[in-house]
Amino acid sequence: MLEVQSLTTAYEGLVAISDISLSVGASEIVAVVGANGAGKSTLLKTIAGMERPASGRILFEGADIAGAPTHRVNMLGIALVPEGRRLFPRLAVRDNLRLGSYLHRRKSDREAPLEMVFNLFPRLAERLDQRAETLSGGEQQMLSIGRALMTRPRLLMLDEPSQGIMPKLVDEILDSVRTIREAGTTVLIVEQRLAETLEIADRAYVLQTGRVVMSGPAKEIAGNADVRRAYLGI
């Protein structure tokens, strides 16, 4: 579904990711793990069109989307749940969700994903009229994911969804990622939390200072002592 070929992105000459290749198959959950500053966020942002790649190709269902503007990438069916959630704090939960849906012209298309979002995160349905800023950290993350799902993506990219969330809710959110995949959406997830993430993922890539240093089935990566010690500092 997604094929990243020797992708390099640099900020003002500073290389953030270098020569990264990875692939995500339909209905897979693929994890990208690595320490802080390994380039995980940059990778997702480049795929989403929020950063311009210096070189390389990003093939989504065969079409090269490297360097395409974000709204076009969105239209093709890729949604990003950005790091730090990035909600619209003073807008109601309803309005935040609605903002995800305007990608679609038809009203029926816009309202269709709502039921799924409410099934996934019933708390959101209870808090429709509340401002996003009044939600707890975990609820805000649910809203951020829900908002991305409103675009009806075929590929959902999550950037550190566990960041700043209490442990109980982390499990809930990672469980929801499973449910999202069962509903037919492919998932590319970036995380610092190794154990929990590798538990839900099918395959994983380990990133270190902007390069892929290891890849394989999630179970193998999880069992590999070298990964834990050398690359993740655990």
Partner: peptide, 20 residues
């Protein structure tokens, strides 16, 4: 109207949702 408020509240988030 929603796009405008999205731009006001958080430009980057708006962009990540495909808002021009």
């Amino acid at each position: 109207g929603y796009y405008w408020r999205a731009v006001r509240e958080n430009t980057l988030a708006a962009q990540s949702l495909g808002v021009q």
